Amino acid sequence: MKRIFQCVVLCLFFILLGAGIFFMAAGCGKKGPPVPPTKNAADIPAAPTGLKYTLKDRDLTLSWRCASLPDQAQEPRVEGFEVFMATKPLAGCQGCPFIFKSLGVVPMPRKSFVYTLDQDLHYYFRVQTLGRDNIKSKVSDTLYIEFP
């Protein structure tokens, strides 16, 4: 009888051990990479186009067009525009990298930005459309200005 009891206890031990391993394997905790939220293509505003500038003394007025504006129905998709600028010295090395930094945000409905230039620099400007819920367009083409 003692031998049967030992056999039953041993069988129960292995059954519980097997069940524990089975449940642990099913919930191992391994995760996949996070999945970014998807954005509806209709909600992404168009990038600004037609960057141009006017210069009066050292004051540069940058202006652009935005294709996202005419078809805005009741709720506007465009909230503003972020202006970026990079500079390089005229005597700087050709092909050296430069970094665009934000100059600020232009709120709607303005589509222009005024900046005072320094002398002897290469200037590069880009503009990006800002939409609802922090949705941003691609950046515009780069506008190059050399101010002697």
Rank of each mutant, 00 (worst) to 15 (best):
I135K: 08
W64T: 00
V8Q: 04
L17M: 12
P107R: 07
F147R: 06
V139D: 12
P70L: 03
Y115E: 08
V35D: 06
Y144S: 12
W64I: 00
Y115D: 08
V105H: 01
L51I: 03
A41P: 14
D71S: 13
Y124Q: 05
S140C: 04
L90N: 07
I21S: 12
I135T: 09
G29Y: 06
W64Y: 00
K136C: 08
Y115V: 01
M108G: 04
L103P: 03
E82D: 10
Y115N: 06
L16T: 15
S112M: 08
V114C: 11
G50L: 01
G80T: 03
D57S: 13
L16K: 14
G80D: 02
K138V: 08
S112W: 07
T61F: 10
Q119N: 14
L10E: 07
A26M: 12
V139G: 10
R132D: 04
Q74H: 14
L60Y: 07
A42V: 13
A46I: 05
K39S: 11
P34F: 06
I15K: 07
M85Q: 10
A46E: 11
V114F: 13
A86D: 06
G32P: 02
P70W: 02
V78P: 02
F84N: 11
Y115C: 00
F100K: 09
N40W: 07
G80W: 04
T38H: 11
M85I: 05
P109V: 03
K136T: 12
L60E: 07
K138H: 10
I99P: 02
D120T: 11
E75S: 12
C66E: 13
L55E: 09
R3A: 10
P37D: 10
E75A: 11
I15N: 01
Q6E: 14
R126Y: 08
K136E: 11
V105W: 03
V127E: 00
P48E: 03
A46M: 10
G80I: 04
A73Y: 13
T61V: 11
D59H: 12
R110V: 04
E75M: 12
T49F: 02
G95D: 05
F23E: 10
P76C: 01
S68L: 02
D133I: 09
